[in-house]
């Protein structure tokens, strides 16, 4: 059981590293524009959810806590997007 959980955590770690490299590659885009900005913010939201749910272990607790973290990323990310789209 523990071995299985550890293997799952390793997969999540790998996914996070791949998403981070994806963020870097998007950042290297010379024509960095709104699409790149929104894509990078979306990747951050996904990474935040992976860390909160699978590393912090929030998938086992009340939906309220998962909702708070998801809401945080949506609100902060959303406000950043609004500021950048202006």
């Amino acid at each position: 059981m523990n071995k299985q959980l550890n293997r799952f955590a390793t997969i999540i770690w790998l996914a996070l590293v791949i998403l981070t490299i994806g963020t870097l590659l998007l950042g290297e885009e010379v024509t960095a524009g709104k699409t790149v900005m929104l894509s990078v913010l979306a990747i951050s939201l996904i990474k935040g959810q992976l860390i909160a749910n699978y590393f912090m272990g929030l998938r086992h607790v009340s939906w309220l806590w998962r909702g708070i973290i998801l809401g945080y990323f949506v609100i902060v990310g959303g406000m950043i997007a609004i500021a950048y789209l202006n």
Partner: peptide, 23 residues
């Protein structure tokens, strides 16, 4: 302690693209 450390990681997940990447 683990929860605190994950929070440090979680904050960097937004800080990194905001400061270094998006423009």
């Amino acid at each position: 302690g683990a929860s605190f450390w994950h929070m440090v990681d979680l904050l960097w997940i937004i800080l990194f693209p905001l400061i270094y990447i998006i423009r």
